[in-house]
């Protein structure tokens, strides 16, 4: 028996308290789960209540849906990989090669979590857009007739913007994990002649793996769901599932098609959410 077990024991007379959960649960059910259920109903049944297999099959085989699905997944995977690499590099430097003001910088990056995602896209159009600073500079310097840098209006623009926006979500758990790494262990390894890369590989990375897995699966989830960045870039070729839902519902008023796509998108998101919860719970991150 541990002390924690004692604390976790049933207190006397809890039965009366069981019903207190009802008001917030009812609110959530009405405002969230009921609409979710209606999306599913609208997706699979037509107005007369008949199962609508033909329409579902048509949408799932359509080019626009498959393109959006491939875009969503590939952008999400690429952005998450980018976030993991950038986050790991930044966290390693912040935690183990700190410089004056590194704490402040860490907090500054952290505030990006609170800022709207489309801010970065807007900034990127000024920086890397066809009339942006980079292209203007290159055209001036080399007397080019056309803007040489065009990646912004491809998937890569979205990926870069998402890396900026979601790296803090990797950085935060990584820094927390690194703060628990025993400094004495690193110093001892250094004294014994281990090179920095070897220490990173053998001492630091094992401690970071739970944070990387939990942060990475959270990044996958958030990038699959990302809407503002893709909308603001507005490139014709880069349509993801959330953007497709918006387009079908608001611009084309095809609610049923929107609902079918939404069901797929939600299923994908919930799967990734499950992965995240499993990773975070399993690894204690």
């Amino acid at each position: 028996m541990s002390e924690a077990a004692v604390i976790g024991a049933r207190p006397a007379r809890v039965e009366t308290g069981k019903f207190w959960i009802l008001p917030p649960a009812a609110l959530l059910a009405l405002l969230f789960f009921y609409p979710l259920a209606l999306i599913a109903r609208q997706a699979f049944f037509d107005d007369s209540g008949m199962a609508n297999v033909a329409e579902v099959t048509r949408v799932l085989h359509s080019r626009f849906f498959l393109n959006a699905l491939i875009n969503t997944v590939s952008i999400s995977v690429a952005a998450t990989a980018g976030c993991l690499i950038v986050g790991l590099v930044l966290a390693l430097i912040l935690a183990f090669v700190p410089f004056p003001g590194s704490r402040f910088v860490a907090r500054l990056i952290d505030t990006f979590i609170a800022l709207p995602t489309f801010l970065v896209t807007l900034a990127f159009t000024f920086l890397y857009g066809s009339a942006g600073m980079l292209n203007a500079g290159l055209m001036e310097a080399f007397s080019l007739p056309l803007p040489p840098v065009n990646f912004l209006y491809s998937s890569w623009g979205v990926v870069l913007a998402e890396v900026t926006v979601y790296t803090p979500f990797i950085l935060r758990p990584l820094l927390a994990a690194f703060s628990l790494v025993d400094r004495g262990q690193i110093e001892a390894a250094s004294v014994l002649g281990a090179r920095p890369l070897r220490i990173v590989r053998q001492v630091i990375l094992p401690a970071a793996i739970p944070a990387l897995i939990a942060g990475g699966s959270l990044c996958l989830l958030l990038t699959v769901n990302e809407f503002g960045i893709v909308l603001f870039i507005g490139a014709k070729g880069v349509i993801t599932l959330p953007l497709l839902i918006y387009g079908k519902a608001i611009q084309e008023s095809q609610y049923q098609v929107a609902c079918i796509i939404a069901v797929i998108n939600i299923a994908l998101s919930l799967g990734l959410f499950g992965l995240y919860r499993f990773a975070a719970g399993r690894l204690g991150a």
């Binding site: 028996m1 002390e3 024991a9 207190p11």
Partner: peptide
């Protein structure tokens, strides 16, 4: 020693453990 049940006995008197 820890885990011997002494804290549990006290918490039973206090009413935190049924």
């Amino acid at each position: 020693p820890s885990g011997s049940g002494k804290t549990t006995a006290l918490r039973a008197v206090a009413g935190f453990v049924r």
